[in-house]
Computed example of a mutant assay.
Amino acid sequence: MNDNSRIPVAIIGSGNIGTDLMIKVLRNARHLRMAAMVGIDPQSDGLARAARMGVATTAEGIDGLLGLPGFAAIGIAFDATSAGAHARHNAALQAHGVQVIDLTPAAIGPYVVPVVNLDAHLDAPNLNMVTCGGQATIPIVRAVSRVAKVGYAEIVASIASKSAGPGTRANIDEFTETTSRAIVEVGGAAHGKAIIVLNPAEPPLMMRDTVYCLVGLDADCAAIDASVRRMVAEVAAYVPGYRLKQHVQFERIDGERRIQVPGLGAVQGLKVTVLLEVEGAAHYLPAYSGNLDIMTSAALATAERMAARRLATA
């Protein structure tokens, strides 16, 4: 580990997300170097691929990582396991001063969406990447909230059932809770709600996301439309398959047409609807797995900025 131009990184979790992230680091990273791939299944494809690509591996989990000869040089670790396991992983890594990027919904550290608030958290010891639905939709909520007051925002993330592995399925409750909170804390909505749909269609469909925002009746539609389109372009800079599916839609809800929102009662306002599609880059996973691709792409973009900052101040 004598390459001082890149920060050595480890990935904990040799499943679909961890393996896709590893390939992205190996192919696309400018400031990062793969130092270790960590799993708990000696037969996992992720560990086998890492070994073939010359990356140090261990099938002994976090304890195995701590025991690797090159562990002391690792500056950043990605956790792509589960919310339940993350607390122990984080505690072990923090004890050694390793900065952690959390791809689970554990939410120990601040919620981070690269295009929205990464600059404010570059030095945080633990950064949480929210969820796949959060990475896809919170930028849109933020795009609307920066030009209009968002009283309520609701997102619906629809992903192919085949792209939802055991980790995703085990964390459904955490997904909805974490995403709902981040819609408010990062997106800027006064109230937020998140829904995830596992679509069993064959052939599998790409990730589709719908964002609903309720703003004041006097909001500027042209300003909202322009803000959303700017944000889509910013996200697409690191997630090339991220795109609008239709023009931004507006609907006036007033008078007797008020809608019932749980917890808020009958409300009125301008309803903004944004329809998105996320196509994966197919580095390791099928193109329909945009839900996984946006997580690994966002995590890579976050780590690259963190590493660039470290290298610039070294």
Rank of each mutant, 00 (worst) to 15 (best):
M207Y: 11
A72N: 13
L292N: 14
A50Y: 12
A59T: 09
M34W: 14
G54F: 09
I23G: 01
Q249E: 14
V228F: 00
G241Q: 07
I259M: 11
G269M: 01
Y152K: 03
D293P: 02
T273D: 06
L47A: 12
A301I: 06
A222D: 13
P203H: 12
V267H: 00
Q268S: 13
V112Y: 03
A48K: 15
G64R: 11
A223F: 06
T179S: 06
G188S: 05
H86E: 11
G187V: 10
G167M: 11
L103Y: 07
G97E: 12
A91S: 08
A10C: 01
E185C: 00
V248P: 00
A51T: 13
N291R: 04
Q94C: 02
K162M: 09
G187Y: 07
A85Y: 07
I138R: 03
Q260D: 12
L205T: 13
V116I: 10
R310P: 00
R305E: 15
L118C: 07
A312R: 15
D220N: 13
A143M: 01
D293C: 10
Y284K: 04
I159F: 01
Q99T: 14
M206N: 09
L65I: 13
G165E: 14
T168S: 03
L285N: 15
A143V: 03
S82T: 15
M37P: 02
R142L: 00
Y288K: 04
Q135N: 15
A201M: 04
V274N: 05
V232S: 05
Y152T: 10
A164T: 06
G70Q: 13
N128D: 15
G134V: 02
L198M: 11
R208S: 14
I12Y: 07
V278W: 02
P8K: 03
A182G: 10
L217V: 09
A148K: 05
T57K: 10
S180R: 05
S163M: 07
D220C: 00
V38A: 08
A153W: 11
L292P: 00
L65S: 08
H31M: 04
G192H: 08
G188A: 02
D79R: 05
